[in-house]
């Protein structure tokens, strides 16, 4: 029953550091900051034929969250529909010009408009957003929905 020796007992931190780095790597790989653009408070409608589509990042997306009272929600704050879509279409045309493609005002824009509207939003509000997008040259739309009731 001798007392512990006075020698310092440094724990070997290497395995713990290995494990922590593995965890950090895991979270770095699975974290997607793109999902920050999605308003997760919205309850999407259910449509049986809605399928998850992964374009592998090739498609340029314009995500529009439409709240039940018809407001456009961008990173949690309400924005004006007309001015926001106008601004985005101008950015799209400028980007195309930089890539050597000229798109006239009202011409077809390459972005896919992702409509994430709450299931209780009246059609008139959704139609206002869609019509504004069409007026500015957006043609491809993706209506987001859950493919089964109660999905997260």
């Amino acid at each position: 029953m001798s007392a512990p020796s006075g020698h310092g007992s440094d724990p070997d931190l290497t395995p713990m550091l290995d494990m922590v780095f593995q965890l950090v790597t895991f979270f770095m790989l699975v974290t997607s900051f793109k999902s920050a653009a999605l308003d997760l408070t919205l309850t999407l409608p259910v449509a049986g034929s809605a399928r998850p589509v992964d374009s592998g990042g090739k498609d340029k997306l314009l995500i529009l969250n439409i709240t039940p009272n018809g407001q456009l929600s961008l990173y949690g704050r309400a924005v004006d529909v007309e001015s926001y879509i106008d601004g985005e279409s101008q950015v799209s045309r400028m980007t195309a010009r930089r890539e050597g493609k000229e798109i006239a005002v009202g011409g077809d824009l390459p972005e896919v408009v992702v409509v994430r509207a709450d299931r209780t939003t009246p059609f008139s509000m959704v139609n206002k957003v869609i019509t504004s997008c069409q007026k500015h040259g957006y043609r491809s739309f993706a209506m987001r929905a859950m493919n089964k009731e109660g999905a997260p």
Binding site: A47, A50, R51, P52, V53, S140, M143, A145, N147
Partner: peptide, 10 residues
């Protein structure tokens, strides 16, 4: 969340 979508040409 894994969301589905319906692609439309409007």
């Amino acid at each position: 969340p894994v969301e589905g979508q319906i692609s439309l040409r409007l």
